[in-house]
Design a protein around this nucleic acid. Sequence first.
RNA 1: GCGCCUGUAGCUCAGAUGGAUAGAGCAACGGACUUCUAAUCCGUAGGUCGGGGGUUCGAAUCCCUCCAGGCGUGCCA
Length: 554
Amino acid sequence: MKTELKTILTEAIHSAFQTGELSACDIPDIEVEVPRQFEHGDFSTNIAMVLASRLRTKPRSLADIIVRHLNDPAGIIEKTTIAGPGFINFHLHAHTWIRLIQHIHEKAGAYGACNIGNGKRIQIEFVSSNPTGPLHVGHGRGAAVGDSVANILSYCGYDVQKEYYINDSGRQIQTLGRSVFLRYQELLGETVFFPEDCYQGEYIRDIALKIQPEKGDSLLDENDEHAITFCARYAAAIILEGMKQDLIQFGVTFDNWFSEQSLYDSGEVDTAIDRFRQRGIIYEKEGALWFNTTAHGDEKDRVVVRQNRQTTYFASDIAYHYNKFNRGFETVIDVWGADHHGYIPRIAAAIESDGHRRDQFQVILVQLVNLLRGGVQVAMSTRAGEFVTLKDVMDEVGTDAARFIFLTRHYDSPLDFDLDLARKKSNENPVYYVQYVHARICSMFRKAADIGIQDVSWDDGALKVLNTPEDIQIIRHIARYPEIVQMSATHLEPHRITYFLMELAAAFHAYYNKQRVITEDVVETRMRLILMWAIRQVIRNGLALLGVSAPESM
RNA sequence: GCGCCUGUAGCUCAGAUGGAUAGAGCAACGGACUUCUAAUCCGUAGGUCGGGGGUUCGAAUCCCUCCAGGCGUGCCA
């Protein structure tokens, strides 16, 4: 609709150029938007005001000229007015709106999809939790955001790959091995000192318990280093498997699981270091190897290889991101916890040093989640092993509620996750509020089938029935959906869809209370059902992008 | 100290990438079920968009500055 109006406007301006009523100039991007006020019409444009400053004339008289040159061959506009400082407001014919329903019927599951991605290959890496403990709610938010962004991007024509980066190398894994080994020794009756920097959680004991029947007490005879390495691998595998199961329950699957260790095994870390070293980007100082990240705006250079010859995580991250781009992705998105934001400049520096543009690397920083129960914050401490896991939350409130609530905030804003609210089956719970729309419409269709109405495909008769103010209002609402999807794709912001759905749900429930759908008038009923069908489709499409189910009944 | 993020109704948050009279949910108050699912709806009340400057026809939105909060600032992960 907007594009049609833009075309009409562009032609009108050109036409005015030709008659000399406007002196020719470059036409800026024409903005057409939905006004806040209903009286301001269905769409409005500020083009006259923008042009006025260029042509140094009065916006209102300019608007007047443009309006006189408007040509609307398809007859979509009912009337055009000039208002305020120079807005041109368009009021569309009811049938223009109702025709949109036909469009939705044709597009169905693809209504809202677009091709702004044009097949561009894009990778999104998320969760990527170290396999040293179960996923907690914070990871859940990252998973919900990452998965939904991936859905949205592929819906908008991008070729998306979802990847999980497994930090299965380095000190944390060593610590994991040590923790498990200590618990294992403890289990076999040895008195051990369990240090504070080891993983305190009960799950460490559970893993040790699994090793015992397999290995007996034989690990005690091996040297500690071997035993710890064994425990580390064993534990990481179990934990990783658990995370995969949790993610499956959460409805998140990955296209690829990428191991950090593999970067060392394949020599890619060394290769990356050598390559940058040859180019002088990595240099030696005080016995360590440094990456010249300040050249790309970082505060200070960062160490890649320490004095003791051990590599830092930055080293493997350089190799990892190099590897990503080598796989042909045009854009790479990382989803991180907001506490890692200090890491962006150095990764960006590494990527730029490889000859990629800064905008080919995007980071979504997800703020933390506060769990609330009874209005009180649930204490969480990873260190002490006291945390509520993602699985706990899913089991308690369900995956739909969890996913939806994780997406009810901009990722940049901390999220209060109210467990009591999430479990509640009432209008206070936004998940049910939206899902209820779908269930209600499904119920109508069951009712309609009972009285013999089966076929609800588009019919031109709808043009005569769906023209009440209530109908037009809700059609205007669903008309905005494709733009919302596009915006959330370009901004990587799934919450826009969440909000859209909540608003659409409100509009539907209001409609439902005001306008009866199933009546004795079979023809009218069928026409109204055509609209209901479209609304249900939009709800379904939106929920799908969020990874939330659309139940037939509740 | 420096950097990033945040500051909008009593509370939790949206705000179309500069538009017209700033919105929603919760909480408060008053209403609506012999009705396609009341898991719903309608109404009332609530604001110095943290403060102050600037940019322009026009600012919650962009720039500067100050204040408050969060996070970061390792040869940690």
